[in-house]
Simulated scan of single mutants.
Amino acid sequence: MSCEQVSPLSMNTSLSGSSGALWPAIVRRTAHALDCGALLPIQTSRTTIDDGGVRFVVRQISSLARKEKDKQQRKAGSSSARASNPFLPYDPDLFVADISDTHLVLLNKFNVIDHHVLIVTRRFELQQALLNLADFRALFACMTQFESLGFYNGGPEAGASQPHRHLQVAPLPLDDSAPQLPIEPLIAAARMDGSVGTVPGLAFAHAFVGFDQALATRPLELARSAFERYMSLLAAVGLHAVDADGEPLQSAPYNLLVTTRWMMLVPRCAERTEGISINALGFAGSLFVRNETQMDTIRKLGPMSVLQRVAGTMGSASAAGSD
């Protein structure tokens, strides 16, 4: 049951990035959800590890007990994956805004990063289906309103915990100790002319493309451009559409990182290495471990080596299935 009745924030994908309506709504909804217990932040301790020109932020999670208990309760309540879907229906206390007739914004119930939100499809759509133009319109309707990182985990092997389509947006900086993304020092050396390439110094397989900065405050045009470049990134790493009853599914798992300035796609071969799970944020320079043993493993191997182990290979769709 909802703690209170609220009027939704209504947005549309033509909303100007300068309107600023979304950020105050996220802040208000966060305060409300904390007050009524709908939002259950995961506490962490933090350290930094320098490797390959990147100051990685590694967070050690104190406890996942509440998240795992919630997951088990949902499984016990129904044998149907869709019936146990936390997005259908969603918790109204986590609801932030309507974006369009296809997408809405929810708070991430078990957040590690403050004000982390999910962009969720209104109807059930598979997480392993290729992203479409409506996804990018919804993403940039949000991201052009405040400095943020968008990311996507394409399937369980890429760190997705739910089969229902959801993109994610985290405000920047990801960590108070740095004013930018950990990988930004390397991004500065990348070509930003709109051609698909790679980032000098990033040791894991990936494809990178810059955006026209004139589009940074024009969400619809930026979304259209990003969607076209997304298809080019998929092709560059060897991924393609696989038809499943008329729905284009991805041929292999991948992660996607998005800002209003650039986008990067990382093919995946494994969800974890040495027991350490990696999602899209890992390739931005933000890693999570469960305990001190895993922290020691990252120190020993080096964060860049950990990322190399779970990233796929370039140029062959089938290669994403092997290390």
Rank of each mutant, 00 (worst) to 15 (best):
C142I: 07
V242L: 14
L149F: 02
D245I: 06
D93Q: 09
L215Q: 11
N279T: 06
F87M: 04
A31R: 14
R224M: 04
A188W: 03
G238Y: 09
S62C: 11
T13K: 01
L149Y: 02
A235F: 05
R261W: 01
F95P: 08
R137Q: 14
L220A: 15
F95R: 08
T30F: 07
L15K: 00
A235R: 15
L174M: 12
A235W: 07
A160R: 02
S16L: 11
C36F: 10
V310F: 04
S62M: 13
I276R: 06
P41E: 07
M304V: 06
G154H: 05
F56Y: 15
A178L: 15
G321L: 09
D114S: 14
G150S: 04
L234K: 11
N111M: 03
G77R: 05
R272P: 00
A311G: 06
P92E: 12
D245Y: 11
V196M: 07
S232V: 00
S148V: 06
A236Y: 07
I183P: 02
A235V: 04
T102R: 14
A21W: 03
K71P: 01
V310I: 09
L307N: 05
A65D: 15
L215W: 10
L104M: 14
V196N: 07
F227K: 07
M304D: 14
P156T: 08
R59L: 14
P8S: 08
Q73I: 00
P173H: 08
P41H: 07
L133W: 02
G20Q: 10
G275F: 05
A129C: 10
L186Q: 11
H103C: 09
T102S: 15
I42K: 04
A244Q: 13
T259Q: 02
L265N: 02
P173D: 06
H116F: 06
G302M: 11
Q127I: 09
L249P: 02
S100W: 06
E157Q: 12
A189D: 14
E292L: 09
A214Q: 15
P248W: 09
A76P: 00
Q168K: 00
N255H: 01
T144I: 09
A134D: 15
I119W: 03
Q162I: 09
L222R: 09
S177N: 04
D91V: 04
A205I: 01
G150Y: 03
A76F: 01
R268I: 02
T121S: 15
L167T: 01
R261K: 13
I276L: 06
F151R: 01
H32Y: 11
N255K: 00
G155S: 08
D93K: 09
